[in-house]
């Protein structure tokens, strides 16, 4: 009788362990290994190996191109920011906009404009604009800049940064330049 209780207990323990492992795998791994750093505009924010300083964002229906302004069916948003790394020269892998409904917007890089991420060095800061294109209703809700210096792999820890943006509406077309090196202490 004791042997049978022991067997039943072991079987139950095995089932329990399997169930727990499954639950952990489902729930924890994709999100539990990501640390989220929440920052604000106008201050240095450290996200993994990246140091970021966001100045602000501007939205307009038009962006300037060599041949004249381009008009979006929605809105172009230019995010003015500077960043450096902490350890070695690198380009952050992904920087996206997230709106109040949780929708994600990426770099419309096929327009042939600057406005994509650039290379920066350890404590060597560069300032530039990141260009996004969003539907008009996304800007009236809150827009957050989400920074993923390295694309997350589910089984390894990673860090992402979230910085809420204040967006200024402009009538003139946005001007997007290439990134420039900042002197020591400048942001």
């Amino acid at each position: 009788m004791r042997a049978r209780w022991g067997l039943a207990a072991m079987a139950a323990a095995a089932v329990l362990a399997g169930g727990l492992a499954n639950a952990a795998d489902d729930a924890l791994l994709p999100s539990g290994w990501t640390t989220t750093v929440r920052g604000a505009e106008g201050e240095d924010v450290v996200v993994g190996n990246l140091q970021v300083h966001v100045h602000g964002a501007t939205a307009s229906t038009r962006v300037d191109d060599l041949d004249g302004p381009l008009t979006s069916p929605g809105l172009f948003v230019a995010v003015d920011l500077s960043y450096a790394t902490t350890d070695a020269w690198a380009t952050p892998e992904v920087i996206v906009l997230i709106d109040g409904d949780g929708r994600e917007y990426s770099d419309p890089s096929n327009l042939g404009l600057s406005g994509s991420t650039w290379l920066a060095g350890p404590d060597i800061w560069f300032r530039g604009d990141l260009l996004f294109e969003v539907p008009a209703d996304a800007v009236t809700s809150s827009l957050t800049l989400e920074i993923r210096p390295e694309t997350a792999v589910a089984v390894l820890p990673s860090t992402i940064g979230q910085i809420p943006l204040t967006v200024t509406r402009a009538e003139d077309p946005l001007e997007i330049g290439s990134d420039t090196l900042l002197a020591e202490g400048e942001r």
Partner: peptide, 16 residues
């Protein structure tokens, strides 16, 4: 067709 460029990523909510 609005910008004469490749589409690339279709952003959520935008009608192209």
């Amino acid at each position: 067709l609005d910008l004469g460029a490749r589409l690339g990523d279709a952003q959520p909510g935008l009608t192209y």
